[in-house]
């Protein structure tokens, strides 16, 4: 293969220079035609996610708020939790999740871990109740039909996720993820994510 012949350059020209020019011009053309990568990926507002995608038309948000109501009621009625614990569960997870589908809580491990476990436990109970209700419900009633619990552990970090499937095909994912950020000072980050995510079950199963 004669590179000079392909690039149509004479013996005075260096094929490397010509290749660089061609590549540079191609890249520039691509940038000018398609815009730069940063322009193509603006950070999307969270509210847009909450509004619901085209598929669910906001049904996921209604289901999400309904589940948060059930979780809140379960926490309030739990006699094993002290009042300050109930307040912390509300302040750290339930109230923020009412407005946004991701919440980042940082703190010292032993101080915020019990809250995260209580939130996870309340969610599982809520999903069980709604699932049980759905089994006995009238076909027209809007309840999730089933839920699935998935756990992913990687090193010191762990993630538990529940996938709730409604009869309308809405897929809600609730994730509780722990990220150990520092072993010296016991700092930890807990991420709560609760939202409509059609692809999440597949992704989670692949992670497992």
């Amino acid at each position: 293969m004669n590179i000079r012949k392909i690039l149509q350059v004479c013996h005075h020209c260096k094929p490397g220079q010509q290749l660089f020019r061609v590549a540079g011009l191609c890249l520039l053309s691509i940038i000018l035609m398609t815009g730069c990568a940063r322009h193509q990926e603006p950070i999307q507002p969270v509210q847009q996610e909450l509004a619901g995608c085209e598929a669910c038309q906001g049904e996921a948000e209604a289901l999400r708020q309904g589940m948060l109501n059930t979780i809140s009621e379960l926490v309030s009625a739990d006699n094993e939790l002290e009042e300050w614990q109930k307040q912390q569960i509300q302040a750290q997870a339930i109230l923020p999740l009412r407005e946004d589908n991701t919440v980042v809580v940082t703190g010292i491990d032993h101080q915020i871990e019990p809250v995260a476990h209580a939130v996870a436990s309340a969610f599982e109970q809520a999903a069980e109740i709604l699932s049980r209700d759905a089994d006995n419900a009238h076909p027209d009633q809007e309840h999730p039909l089933r839920f699935e619990r998935l756990s992913v552990h990687s090193g010191e970090s762990g993630k538990v996720a529940w996938v709730v499937l409604s009869k309308e095909g809405v897929k809600l994912v609730f994730e509780v993820e722990e990220q150990k950020s520092c072993s010296r000072c016991d700092s930890v980050i807990w991420n709560y994510r609760f939202g409509c995510s059609p692809d999440a079950p597949v992704i989670l199963q692949q992670e497992q």
């Binding site: 912390q88 302040a91 750290q92 923020p96 946004d100 919440v103 980042v104 809580v105 940082t106 703190g107 010292i108 101080q111 915020i112 809250v115 950020s181 520092c182 000072c185 700092s187 980050i189």
Partner: peptide, 19 residues
């Protein structure tokens, strides 16, 4: 660093909780 600076690098909103 671990509870404020680093989490805010990736998030516009964080909660710091505990005693």
């Amino acid at each position: 660093e671990d509870q404020a600076i680093n989490p805010l690098r990736d998030n516009e909103h964080i909660l710091i909780a505990g005693l």
